[in-house]
Simulated scan of single mutants.
Amino acid sequence: MKTPAPTQQDQTYARLRQWLTVGQFLPGERLKIHAIADKLGVGVMPVRAALQRLAAEGALVNVPHAGMTVPKLSLAEFDDVLQTRLLLEGEAAERGAHRLDAAGLEALLALEQHMCNALAAHDAKAYLYANELFHLRLYQAAASPTLMALIETVWLKVGPLSNKLFEVSASLRVINEAHGDAVMALQAKDSAGVRRAIEKDLFVAGQFLRPFCGG
Rank of each mutant, 00 (worst) to 15 (best):
I33N: 15
E57N: 04
V47D: 01
L108T: 09
A14S: 06
L82T: 05
T12N: 06
A37L: 07
P27T: 10
L54G: 02
G43R: 12
H98L: 14
K32W: 12
A37Q: 12
F25C: 11
L54V: 09
E77M: 00
L51D: 03
A110R: 14
I36D: 07
Q9L: 06
D101Y: 07
L86V: 10
K32A: 11
R95Q: 15
L86M: 05
E91I: 07
E94F: 02
V63I: 04
G23C: 06
A55Y: 00
R15M: 09
R30C: 08
Q24T: 10
I36E: 10
F78D: 00
L40Q: 13
S74V: 01
L82S: 01
A56V: 08
R30D: 07
F25E: 09
L40Y: 09
A103N: 04
S74E: 08
Q8C: 04
G96S: 08
V44Q: 14
M68D: 07
V81E: 13
L87I: 04
L26D: 12
V61W: 08
R15D: 02
T69I: 04
R30I: 11
D79E: 11
A97G: 14
I36Y: 11
V42D: 05
V61Q: 05
L109N: 13
T84L: 07
V44K: 13
A97F: 10
A92R: 02
G96Q: 13
H65P: 01
L20T: 03
G104Y: 00
A14N: 01
R95L: 15
G58K: 09
G23Y: 05
I36H: 08
Q8R: 10
L108N: 09
A102F: 10
S74T: 15
H34K: 14
N62T: 00
A50E: 07
G41H: 10
V70N: 07
E77Q: 12
F25I: 13
V70M: 11
A93Q: 05
P46F: 06
F25V: 10
P71M: 14
G43P: 09
G90V: 04
G96R: 05
R15H: 08
A110N: 07
H65D: 05
W19E: 01
D10G: 10
M68A: 10
Q83P: 01
L108D: 06
E106G: 01
